[in-house]
Nucleic acid binder design. Structure first.
Lengths: 228, 228
DNA sequence: CACTGTATGCTTACGCCGTAAACTACCCAC
DNA sequence: GTGGGTAGTTTACGGCGTAAGCATACAGTG
């Protein structure tokens, strides 16, 4: 017969890798373990995947692709288009927290990443941004998605925080860290907070588009210069 | 005599680790190599450092500390205080790009990280933010520093980008990625772009403080709802 | 002085990792 | 059948973090 039902293939390896990491975390992904998961020796995988690095890159691309495979119609407002991408990426990353470590740490640019960057850039260009501002805007939006979301996904849960943070929760270090102690127990929903950030970014971009001087505050003081 | 001039110590190990990584990158840091760098066997290090993980955590703390050890006077405007921290962290991270991978990926909260969070939080509280908004604000500022800066520090240089990106620069894929092709060659300075982002964030925070509805755009449409 | 406890560094070893190289078993076209 | 490609295995190398035990050298006490 044609290849037995359980023959290896690039796709089966990739899917198994995603499943393994979903189930047991990034650090559980080794070629040996991935092999046994597929009922096969580690070295067999190399018939289908050039290296572990390439496998990781493929996993990244699969994830990034999921952010844009239902991109909103180009007829929409640029704000709606950006917002949709940002929220979709955010949800996908929070569902697979391990993806954060993969996507943010590997600077490799695959096809999906290019399509993703293209979607953001054209939304900005269609929205009337100059190429210069669209360029910055891509970095701002990308940085927000990757960075802010990453911070949320990695935010240590109370359990992993250790004694010091527990003490903070209990109000023990209130004299040493009064600010944190006052705010640490505030209600806090990742999606709601991200919505805040998305709005902040989009409104900021709108401000930039309208030609407000970029690095000057309303008061006229330049924080850049004030610092450096 | 008292310990010979070149005796090991926690501090000497830590400094050597920082120096090694500065010189040869994060992936060059192994206990064996760190040992030879200090003229000592790998296992000797364990007399002074409990584990490699703890060593990495200490390195993170040393870096974060550098962001705040010249914190601006609390007499200053909250905007100036946040701006100063954000720019200082940014410069420090761009100077040691490897620190990005350490600081962002390890959710461990050391002393310096607490002081850093405290500095941001009190700046916001002193600026009249409610505890609830200060809490969100800390996450927004922290996420921007860690996230946006991280994206910049990791932005692949043209050399590491591979053929596809080179083709983009050459305008080859202009039909497939018209937006990117139009904007990819825009001038682009990390510090200037970050200043844009810092201003965007600070102005956004000011807007929040003034009670503008958080997740609603000027047009009144909710992007969150529009998406989810 | 000898004696002993402690601190420091070294040696060896274990079980992981990614993967290069050579080998076997099979299946299909001629 | 038989030669060639394909899929999976075996073995091995050099690396990793670190547990366990050993050697040395010094400090304090009698």
């Amino acid at each position: 017969m044609t290849p037995p039902r359980d023959a290896l293939s690039y796709d089966r390896v990739l899917q198994a890798a995603l499943a393994l990491v979903d189930a047991h975390g990034l650090e559980a992904l080794s070629m040996r373990r991935l092999g046994t998961e597929l009922g096969v020796e580690a070295m067999s995988l190399y018939r289908h995947v050039p290296s572990k690095d390439a496998l990781l890159d493929a996993m990244v691309d699969a994830i990034v692709q999921s952010w844009i495979d239902e991109t909103p119609s180009t007829a929409d407002d640029w704000r709606a288009r950006l917002s949709a991408i940002m929220h979709r990426a955010h949800r996908a990353l929070l569902e697979r927290p391990w993806a954060v470590d993969l996507v943010t740490v590997r600077p490799r640019v695959g096809d999906a990443r290019l399509r993703y960057a293209e979607a953001i850039t054209t939304a900005l260009l269609d929205g009337g941004f100059t190429p210069q501002l669209a360029h910055h805007g891509l970095h701002i939006v990308d940085g927000t998605i990757m960075g802010f979301t990453a911070q949320q996904a990695r935010r240590p849960n109370a359990a992993a925080l250790g004694d010091r943070a527990q003490a903070l929760y209990d109000g023990a270090l209130a004299d040493q860290y009064p600010g944190i102690s006052r705010t640490i127990r505030e209600h806090h929903d990742h999606h709601e907070e991200y919505a805040l950030m998305v709005d902040l970014v989009i409104e900021g971009l709108a401000r930039l588009r309208e030609g407000r001087p970029p690095h000057r505050s309303r008061s006229g003081a330049s924080y850049v210069l004030a610092f450096s």
